[in-house]
Design a protein around this nucleic acid. Structure first.
Lengths: 323, 323
DNA sequence: CGCCCCGCTGAAATCGGTTACAGTGGGGCA
DNA sequence: TGCCCCACTGTAACCGATTTCAGCGGGGCG
């Protein structure tokens, strides 16, 4: 591993000049050529640790998400990656597993590594960002707010829940809602949309059909089983996220009432579904776009932008079932 | 951000002693207590860049995969993460997008950051690892070999393809195979298993039913359409990976011949399928286990293990359709 | 012709840990 | 009592970039 000193010696210049060549400061043309040539010959790559130590900042951003196996978050990660690498930044993907302790471990590591900033899909409503923020590192909250006055990119959750529900209420009477954990913002907001749709339709809100689960396949399965066991089961279901939708539909299929025999609407996409696309209503959430937007906002902040915190709300896209 | 010098001053010891306390070298009990107390008070976190610079190695491993949106790889990533964090290592997830250039960019970054090692699901058959290997950093190939004499963790692909095909051949006559790119090892090996199953069954190998696509949903869709347009279409399909399976089943559903009306076997799991589990035969591949194994092997190497390169082959698990 | 300014360059300090090496002091043994 | 050894501790060099500051030379202007 060649160092800047090796390159300097071979090119007949000082290490400072080598550094300047690689950092765009003014250097005479002939020395630039000599340095580039020497660097090429030695296949020199600057030591990032040294640069980070000196600069107190590395061109890396941390992306902390609660579930790396959820395609919604990987689609978002994709967007973050694309936007970041455009600007020469790398992304470290951290899976908090929805556990606040793992989350704060990752935040501590991010600071110890002097990463430039953090994009956080918070594991809980009150993530402790004090350390990160006092270190002067920007944080952008994605998908859910993190309980601090910082930039946010979130979905129009209430509206998504409302649209999904309203669509089902046109042709169904007992529309249940299966959400994620009640204390997670996105989950509660989408449930609120479910209530609003009922009121808009002039229908009493069937609170006993409002259920909370985990944001995972097994959560959807469990609650769907419960709902089917009711004396008067629902004739339609709104799933609070993609995985809950998968779990619910699995159970319905196993009971021989796969959609469209029962109405199903999902907030979020079903990228790997094997159903006919026309069978299920989907409110597609632009996860990739959310990632791209968050990354751009974070990069703005890293570059010194210090306007007051912004909140960007992205709208879902209703894709009604055809049947 | 407190430094080791701040802690040393507050605890009334030298910086060296502080370092020793955090690195497990022998220090007298009273000084340990003083240092821990001071560190606590200053909420000291060691600067990783400084440590990396001095040690020429950081407790980070790079995981390079071709498709971050494929649940097979995220499940594997999960395993790598779990095993690595057990040993105090962080994982940087790099998405090569199956492009050799992006892949080599990430490898270069990994070296520049002095990461301890690399787990690589190679984008092509001949990845250039010369730089990494001459730098003395261990590399473990996962899922596919990387064309170097290094540790490998791969699936029993031939056997998986054979099992899936053999199972279908018991009840079907024209079993097609839709694989990923022909030049990717896993793809070719599974196809070979398809051939073997035919021979074992004493049936002529229907080469015109052997098709290659991309390892993505759209690849599976495209080829499935082609197969259905044949004068004599297949009555069963082996999908070379999970996403191809999803695409193929989508097309079949759209044509009104969803499994089990047509035989379908998939090499790999369908974690987010909404089909009844009994409808499709699956050869489950232990992706998480692959990640765990690869991470453990890599950590062995990082710790100095220099036995000859090992190859671990993990077997799939046939889960036959019930109907 | 002399002075000043500007642009380029190099020397050296710096970032914050780790670690080789050189003490220092106390206990054990002759 | 004297010496040696061992366990612990501190000093200082080092990792490899970046960046400040000073020096140098040439050109422009008075």
């Amino acid at each position: 591993m060649a160092t800047i000193y090796d390159v300097a010696a071979l090119a007949g210049v000082s290490p400072a000049t080598v550094s300047r060549v690689f950092n765009g400061t003014k250097v005479s043309d002939d020395k630039v050529a000599a340095v580039r040539d020497a660097a090429e010959r030695l296949s020199f790559t600057p030591n990032r640790a040294a640069r980070t130590l000196r600069r107190q900042s590395s061109e890396v951003i941390a992306l902390v998400i609660p579930d790396i196996e959820n395609p919604y978050f990987t689609e978002m990660a994709r967007g973050v990656e694309d936007a970041a690498s455009e600007s020469g930044y790398s992304v470290v993907l951290c899976n908090s597993d929805a556990q606040p302790e793992k989350e704060s471990t990752y935040l501590r590591i991010a600071m110890a590594e002097r990463m430039s900033g953090v994009i956080l899909a918070a594991a809980s409503a009150q993530t402790d960002l004090a350390e990160v923020l006092t270190a002067g590192r920007p944080v952008v909250a994605v998908d859910r707010s993190a309980g601090h006055d910082i930039d946010e990119v979130v979905m129009a959750n209430r509206e998504a829940g409302r649209q999904a529900t309203a669509h089902l209420l046109r042709t169904h009477r007992r529309v249940a809602y299966i959400g994620g954990p009640a204390d997670i913002e996105t989950s509660a907001e989408r449930a609120e949309g479910w209530r609003i749709a009922h009121r808009d339709a002039g229908v009493a809100v069937p609170e006993h059909l409002l259920r909370f689960a985990s944001f995972r396949v097994d959560g959807g399965r469990r609650v769907m089983e419960e709902l089917l066991a009711l004396p008067e089961p629902p004739d339609a279901i709104v799933a609070g996220n993609n995985l809950i939708g998968v779990g619910a539909i699995q159970v319905l299929s196993e009971h021989g009432v796969a959609p469209p025999r029962i109405g199903v609407a999902v907030v979020g996409s079903l990228p790997y579904t094997t159903l006919r696309p026309s069978a299920v209503t989907v409110v597609r959430l632009p996860a990739r776009q959310m990632g791209v937007t968050a990354a751009r906002m974070l990069l703005d902040r890293i570059r010194g932008d210090d306007q007051p915190p912004r909140t960007v709300v992205l709208r879902g896209d209703l894709q009604p079932a055809a049947d």
